[in-house]
Simulated scan of single mutants.
Amino acid sequence: MLVTGVVGWLAAFQLTVDDWRLLRDPTYQPPCNISPVVSCGSVMSSPQGSLFGFPNMLVGLGAFAAVAALGVAVLSGARLHRRLWLALAAGALAGVVFVHWLIVQSLYELNKICPYCVVVWVVTIALFWYLTLHCLERGIVPASRGVLAVLRDTHWMLLAAWYGVIALLVLTRFWPYWSSLL
Rank of each mutant, 00 (worst) to 15 (best):
V67M: 14
L15K: 04
V43F: 06
L23T: 05
A69R: 01
A143C: 04
S144E: 11
A69P: 00
L171C: 05
V123E: 04
R82T: 13
A167K: 00
E109V: 15
A89E: 08
V150G: 04
R138N: 10
R173M: 06
A149C: 06
R24T: 09
A126S: 13
L23C: 01
T16D: 05
F13G: 01
V59R: 01
C32M: 12
G77Q: 09
N111D: 14
I166E: 11
A126C: 07
G146K: 13
V150Q: 10
V118P: 02
P36D: 12
Q14W: 08
P176W: 00
A11E: 05
P31T: 05
C114Y: 05
L107M: 03
Y177F: 15
D19M: 01
G49R: 03
T172P: 00
E137W: 01
A167R: 04
G41L: 10
L131T: 14
W9V: 03
P30W: 06
Q48I: 11
C114R: 07
F128R: 02
W156P: 02
D18I: 05
L171V: 03
W85G: 00
M157D: 05
Y116N: 13
E109G: 05
S106L: 07
A12Q: 04
Y130P: 08
L159V: 10
P26Y: 13
G8V: 02
M57R: 12
I125V: 15
A73H: 03
P47H: 06
L148W: 08
S39C: 12
L148H: 03
G77L: 10
